[in-house]
């Protein structure tokens, strides 16, 4: 039946990741970790020599007090229902087409108003700070939501490392722009590369993380590998994927969705049940795979932690 029994799906599908992995990659990942075991060396993904395939286990991931205890969405939910327009605008496009994305080697340029600008290799970034599991709610602007066990580290760890100057008021993020790897970029659905941004204090908030993994393993391509932002109190599109550039700037960045439709998408885009998108009511949401809809919570339920960032601001105006 189409009305699925949520707990059933979760327990069975969490372990069923081989479904997602192509057989070849599965075998490769398996042999790579066997080889590293035999050599007594660091896992292949850490050495940066071998490719870190999605599905490779991430070692030493710590639990976090900031995680929610709500039931998780299945690995299948999270990896087959994605908005990632770089690979097509249908929800199942990213799972089909993101295989062309090459995530190793990968560099992230951190630049702008900082004392220590640097081009980081992805493996170096992953060792910047201990990896934590962060189980967050994700609320899409299209009025559906999931609960996702990300693996990552606080964005604030990177911010501290590069030492922003007093001029740095905002952080701007850019996705890779390469139509060969990202076939969706061959059409001008949005202005490429995808751009997102946060105010400095938002970026430094402990809930904001850079994610490199999902379900304890290397992030699948369709979820924004190898490095993505996760800002759980904002609509999903703020959590930019496959980041290649992080820029500290003085002025508020113009984000892709603001440019596409300024009357519908604002810079802040905090989850807010009282301010409707012109085309969708934001008062309720469908928690996948539930049948009925539930009430949407202010700041996606993270109000206790983040509301003070916006004190004195009219959130009907600053959407």
């Amino acid at each position: 039946m189409l009305i699925r029994n949520a707990p059933d799906i979760k327990s069975s599908e969490i372990t069923d990741k081989s479904l997602y992995l192509s057989r070849r990659k599965f075998l490769l990942a398996g042999s790579a970790s066997l080889a590293s075991l035999a050599a007594g060396a660091a896992p292949a993904w850490l050495s940066g020599v071998d490719e870190a395939y999605a599905g490779t286990k991430l070692p030493g991931v710590q639990k976090s007090r900031l995680s929610t205890g709500e039931p998780l969405n299945s690995f299948k939910d999270i990896t087959t229902y994605n908005n990632f327009y770089e690979f097509g605008t249908d929800k199942d496009d990213p799972a089909q087409y993101a295989k062309t994305l090459v995530t190793r080697p990968w560099t992230v340029a951190v630049e702008g108003e900082v004392k220590r600008p640097k081009i980081y290799g992805i493996d170096e970034l992953m060792k910047l700070s201990p990896l934590e599991e962060r189980i967050y709610r994700l609320r899409c602007v299209e009025a559906w939501s999931m609960v996702i066990p990300w693996v990552g580290f606080p964005l604030s760890a990177l911010i501290k490392r590069v030492e922003p100057t007093s001029k740095a008021k905002y952080v701007e993020f850019l996705t890779l722009h390469d139509p060969k790897q990202m076939p969706g970029q061959r059409r001008g659905v949005l202005e490429w590369p995808y751009v997102e941004g946060l105010r400095m204090d938002e970026a430094a908030h402990p809930l904001a993380i850079l994610a490199v993994g999902l379900y304890g393993e290397v992030l699948p391509n369709q979820n924004g590998a190898p490095l993505r932002l996760v800002v759980p109190w904002k609509y999903g599109f703020k959590s930019i994927k496959s980041i290649v550039k992080i820029r500290f700037v003085e002025n508020q960045p113009a984000t892709s969705w603001m440019k596409a439709n300024p009357s519908e998408y604002g810079f802040y885009s905090n989850v807010n049940p009282d301010v409707d998108h012109p085309r969708w009511s934001q008062a309720r949401e469908r928690r996948i795979p539930e049948f009925t809809k539930r009430k949407t919570l202010m700041f996606n339920g993270y109000g206790d932690q983040v509301a003070q960032l916006y004190s004195g601001m009219d959130l009907r105006k600053y959407i």
Partner: peptide, 16 residues
């Protein structure tokens, strides 16, 4: 048929 065989994807209601 897809409804009965779990073939409507992750968000069946949207699919319908």
């Amino acid at each position: 048929y897809n409804g009965y065989t779990d073939g409507l994807g992750v968000n069946p209601i949207e699919t319908i």
